[in-house]
């Protein structure tokens, strides 16, 4: 196992930047599809950090976790997009600012 040339810290930083960009997307975008995309971005940022740590510790568990995250993300996207379709059908909009069924 050759010593890594790129320090894990850099990966962590990059992961953090991507994560916070995804967060901003969730917070600031009103298009539900874009919000979803941002969530995917956040998940990927987390995956990146996981991969970096897995290499750091020479432990495969991190990579397995990435695998699970991807699987769950796929499920989540499927459900989420189905929801968006359903909501669009009833409200004719995917602007999340117009979705507040939790409060009348």
């Amino acid at each position: 196992m050759e010593a890594p040339e790129v320090a894990t810290e850099l990966y962590v930083l990059l992961s953090a930047i991507l994560f916070i960009l995804g967060t901003l997307g969730v917070l600031l975008r009103r298009n539900a599809i874009l919000v979803f995309m941002s969530i995917e971005l956040m998940l990927n940022a987390a995956n990146l950090a996981l991969a970096a740590f897995a290499r750091q510790w020479g432990n495969l568990d991190g990579q397995l976790l990435i695998f699970f995250v991807m699987t769950i993300a796929a499920a989540e996207v499927a459900i989420g997009l189905a929801l968006i379709v359903a909501i669009f059908r009833s409200k004719k909009s995917i602007n999340i600012d117009e979705l507040h069924l939790f409060k009348n």
């Binding site: 995956n47 990146l48 897995a54 290499r55 990579q63 990435i66 991807m70």
Partner: peptide, 15 residues
Amino acid sequence: FFFLMLSAAFLAMVQ
């Protein structure tokens, strides 16, 4: 690409 660099070739493919 980063996954590849982090010796997670399989995950890169899956990604």
